Amino acid sequence: MSITDLLREDLRDFAGYRSARTESVAGDVWLNANESPWPNAGESAGVLRRYPDPQPDALRARLAELYGCAPAQLLAGRGSDEAIDLLVRALCMPGQGAVVVTPPTFGMYAVSARLHGVQVVEAPLRDTPGGLECDFHAVAGAALESDARLVFLCSPGNPGGTALPLERVAALAERLRGRALVVVDEAYQEYADSPSAVALLAAHANIAVLRTLSKAHALAGARIGSVIADPGLIAALRRCQAPYPLAAPCVHAALQALGAAEITATRANVAVVVAERARLAARLAGLPGVRRVYPSSANFLLVRFDDAQSAFERLLAAGIVVRDMRAAPGLGDALRITIGLPEQNDRVVEAIAEAAVTA
């Protein structure tokens, strides 16, 4: 069975929209896209008057090299959010079917599904001494029972920070072969001391991996994300994608950020974050009023408090904004704290210590 058999039946021969930039033609006078013949008055280079390449070869090649895949296995888009939406739209009929999620987790999986009228089936994470862990048996059962076409896993998890064992992901994909696509969201993979699920693609065509330049590569404002999967699925997703998903300045910024020197600097910054993650976790765990600090393989810590409201208010009073997780399932006393610069992390500790004193 081909992975493209999981596509919506009505989209299997869907050609999509062919924009002016998808045509392989050459010339020195370009009159095929109804663009202005003059540059914008505020942009001297004149680059922005032209529509951008939908999938720039240089960017795809550089991203493929970075993530350890072939360019034909990668589709670039507007952050991981677009990839999530494309997968739901391509595999799930509107108003039918199901996707499986593992709450507490990244909310866009459920948002994209619900906007498409697709049922969201939950297989909650288990709160264990080792952190928030995926119940793979429950995930498989939920997917098979609901006939879900998509299973969304987050590794390292958001907000828990737990990385998933690749052998368990592979076993899940094998169990769901021909039934569902297992999507592994690796937005925080750079901070993890574990291999990427991209290594599983050769043996499991029903695995897709999401990556982003928003976190470790500090390009959240450029909105560059990737989905890595079987080339047949990538080609189908490209047909479902908007004509010009990547703005030219954002592509330029991404290519600049992916140079050899810049990658070396990024890795050095990641090493600092990992060291600070351990230091901040140890300091927070020793504070009164801190109930638990979860182990994390990401660039944040999930922290439970005796009085989360007091801690949240004290942090805000100190000018520190963290993520309030109390509305998430099972996290009614928790905040998520991104790892900042060392001096910023020190301010977090000081503010929480003051909250404990005044509580």
Rank of each mutant, 00 (worst) to 15 (best):
G141D: 12
G141P: 08
A142V: 06
A142F: 03
A143C: 10
A143R: 02
A143N: 06
S146Y: 07
S146K: 02
D147I: 09
A148H: 01
A148P: 00
A148E: 01
R149Y: 07
R149G: 07
R149M: 08
R149E: 09
L150S: 01
L150G: 00
L150R: 07
V151A: 07
F152L: 08
C154A: 15
S155Y: 05
S155W: 04
G157Q: 02
P159M: 12
G160I: 03
G161E: 01
T162M: 13
T162Q: 14
A163N: 03
L164T: 09
L164C: 08
P165W: 07
L166V: 10
L166M: 12
L166G: 08
E167L: 14
R168Y: 12
A170G: 05
A170T: 05
A171Y: 06
A171G: 07
L172I: 07
L172A: 04
A173L: 05
R175P: 03
R175G: 03
L176Y: 03
R177Y: 12
G178D: 08
R179G: 03
A180F: 05
A180V: 05
A180D: 01
L181P: 00
L181G: 00
V183K: 02
V183N: 01
V183D: 03
V184G: 08
V184A: 10
D185C: 15
D185P: 03
E186L: 10
E186H: 06
E186V: 07
E186P: 00
Y188K: 00
Y188E: 07
E190Q: 14
Y191T: 00
Y191K: 02
A192G: 02
S194R: 15
P195F: 06
S196V: 05
A197Q: 02
V198M: 06
V198P: 03
A199N: 12
L201Q: 01
A203D: 15
A203M: 13
A203R: 13
H204C: 10
A205N: 09
A205C: 13
A205S: 15
I207A: 09
A208N: 05
V209Q: 04
V209S: 05
R211E: 09
R211T: 11
L213C: 03
L213G: 00
K215Y: 14
A216M: 09
A216R: 05
A216L: 07
H217E: 13
H217G: 08
L219F: 02
A220G: 14
A220K: 14
G221Y: 13
G221V: 11
A222Q: 14
R223W: 11
I224C: 05
G225C: 06
G225E: 03
S226L: 14
S226A: 15
V227D: 00
D230G: 11
P231D: 04
P231W: 08
L233K: 01
L233G: 00
L233I: 08
I234T: 04
I234C: 05
I234F: 06
L237P: 02
R239V: 11
C240E: 15
C240D: 04
P243W: 11
P243K: 11
Y244S: 12
Y244D: 11
Y244V: 13
A247V: 09
A248V: 12
A248F: 10
P249G: 08
C250L: 04
C250P: 04
V251Q: 05
H252I: 15
H252V: 14
L255C: 04
L255S: 02
L255R: 01
L255G: 00
L258T: 01
L258A: 04
A261M: 10
A261P: 05
A261C: 10
A261Q: 14
E262V: 02
I263R: 15
T264C: 10
A265D: 14
A265R: 15
